[in-house]
Design a protein around this nucleic acid. Sequence first.
DNA 1: TTTTGTTTTTGAACAGTGTTCATTTATTTT
DNA 2: AAAATAAATGAACACTGTTCAAAAACAAAA
Lengths: 205, 205
Amino acid sequence: MGIPERKEREKEELRERILTAAKTLFLEKGVEKTSIRNIADLIEYSPGIIYHYFQDKNEIFHALHQGGFHQLMSRMGVLTSVSHPMERLKAMGTIYVQFAMENPDMYDLMFIKEAPIDHVSNSNEEQWKEGFGTFNFLRDTIKECIDKGHFQGHEIEALSYLIWSTVHGLVSLHIRRRCEVVLAHKQHTIVKEGLEEFFNILDKL
Amino acid sequence: MGIPERKEREKEELRERILTAAKTLFLEKGVEKTSIRNIADLIEYSPGIIYHYFQDKNEIFHALHQGGFHQLMSRMGVLTSVSHPMERLKAMGTIYVQFAMENPDMYDLMFIKEAPIDHVSNSNEEQWKEGFGTFNFLRDTIKECIDKGHFQGHEIEALSYLIWSTVHGLVSLHIRRRCEVVLAHKQHTIVKEGLEEFFNILDKL
DNA sequence: TTTTGTTTTTGAACAGTGTTCATTTATTTT
DNA sequence: AAAATAAATGAACACTGTTCAAAAACAAAA
């Protein structure tokens, strides 16, 4: 008797359709301008149905931002081939920045917007699994660097946060348009140039 | 006949009262949850009046964020007493981070929220004067550092952007709650610790 | 003082928002 | 075929930013 299984499949299918519609609209118009009614229109259901699949709007965008972390993490996959941890750290930075510049809206959702984090706070899961995983990945690499003699006199946790902050700062000032009005000339190259300066500094440590 | 003068004064006064009310509500509930009707209620006028003093909601929050830049810049005033540019640069970083941590909502408005920048884009002023001024201040200090022999092999503009990015990253990940869920322990000290790591690095350059 | 002209202020209206929930429709089980 | 369960609806609630004809308040002229 496969009826409950089929029902389960159908539920999952509709959930996925909601998410796909939400993603389409979100990439078109951003989080704020994507309304529940817009999503409902696109999947040709009534607005109410969405609340049978998601607690609220935040949960939808939390689910979307998970997809972003999958994308980012899969890009990080190539790093296994970089054996020296210092080179790997720099390659990580490059991938991180590249991802952000190529998917600014997704990056914004993952690391700037409050919606997904609000959902983590309001649900009973005590932790932001996605972010935690990515941060650990960075910390492990930095740990290896320290083991190889780099970053002497530095504390691993604080240094990891600093390095994350640096790349996040580079891309988030750009995404939130704080540099296009300050460095109007070279606004298209400044993030890359800043990252290169950062690598120069890392090489000295 | 001072009637037009008095009228001018009264207009300016009401404008100021709108701004004060907006600031009160904004610091209480944030930008999104502060509505035009809330502001109107607080000053005991009808909602429509606000549109005789401001083009739209963004202009109100742009005006508010200007106040934040005044605050920040006046804090930077003490830096004139720091003669060595490298020490001055570090002191700037400390003041910047301190300002952000003590006024997270104002910092958010100044450097993260899109509202004030949207207003700059939509008005005819081609530039974000407030940000430009602060950035120049930073760049001038870094220029002096270079003149004294620091930061060899670095390009001034890109390096300035990198340093700004670093401190911005440190505080903005915290303000947007990306570190309290990743580094739940020591979430209250991580920004300070990260900044200290940064200073350690700067000392080596 | 009354009338005319100007400026300031109002508040209803528009088109939207997230969210809830009694009611209806569809499907499955008895 | 009837009863029970699950899925889906759409009206309603309390909001939002913004506009604009109409009203009220005030100043100048008669």
